[in-house]
Amino acid sequence: MDKLLKVSPSPHVHGGDSVSRNMLRVIVALLPAYAVALYSFGVGALVVSLTAMFSCVLFEYLIQRFLLKGKFTINNYSALLTGLLLSFNLPSNLPWWIVVIGSVVAIGIGKMCFGGLGNNPFNPALVGRVFLLFSFPVQMTTWPRPLGWASSYLDAETMATPLSLLKAGKLEQMPDALNMFLLDTPGSLGEISALALLIGGIYLLITKVITWHIPVSILLTVTAFAGILYGVDATTYPLPHIHLLSGGMMLGAIFMATDYVTSPMTHKGMLIYGFFIGVITMVIRVWGVYPEGMSFAILIMNAFTPIINKYVKPKRFGRVVKK
């Protein structure tokens, strides 16, 4: 035989899963919400999202090529996904240069300075978003009215989000739940339609990109927490479904908290992680200064993920003997 036989340890077959396939599936799962965002916010959404995606990919490439001098990694779509997720966390009337700064922070500080995908302790998109929230508090908290379709995206008509209404105690001005569920809520690009996000989440569950543990644990915790508050004082606190449908709850629970790299590896760990995200989010929403606490909660729990991984072990085979 002229060809040499290959030799390697077993197993000799692979299931076909790959990093890029997972990333691509998450991007596909975000498409319904993206479509809603484009419909609601028009050209603003397009500018913000394209800027974020393009600059994330560009900065990952530049850092990889000139600073790390390592393997070419933008072909695994993770930078594209980070860009898309970052834009989902931004208002559609954000000037493009702020978006670029957010991308630099997300990719550079959030991901590449730890050694690239897999080594980052915090969710890169959220690092970018929170950085922008602290640096540009005004721009980051003026939300354009959905379906406003302003001619120039920067001077769109703005209005308050359900959560800031909640914070201000203006329960009577809240949009009705059906609107929040479908599309008509002001907020970041990716926050407006719980339905579109849920469709994406179901797709991710079916394709086994994520497991149910984290989203269900977060949403149940929030429901229970809000339920208890409502039970205590129904005049100040809204019904639980308002909390579930408003702000970044769905986006965070389904797409941000389930990020592979920064979430625990065991199912038990995921439940614990989700529970605390739910609790921290509600504490910030109800008693904190900020109207929305999802991104902070996720980042805080990201920091606890290594500890959860260290102490929450999977159930080992043969440790419990049944006689």
């Binding site: 990093v19 050694g115 995908l117 592979y260 625990p264 590896m265 065991t266 159930k315 085979f317 043969g318």
Partner: peptide
């Protein structure tokens, strides 16, 4: 091979409950 992306899939398929 790439970096480990800590997806935890190896943990969930291990039939001996290892990591």
């Amino acid at each position: 091979m790439d970096n480990c992306i800590r997806c935890g899939k190896c943990v969930s398929v291990c039939c001996m409950g290892l990591q």
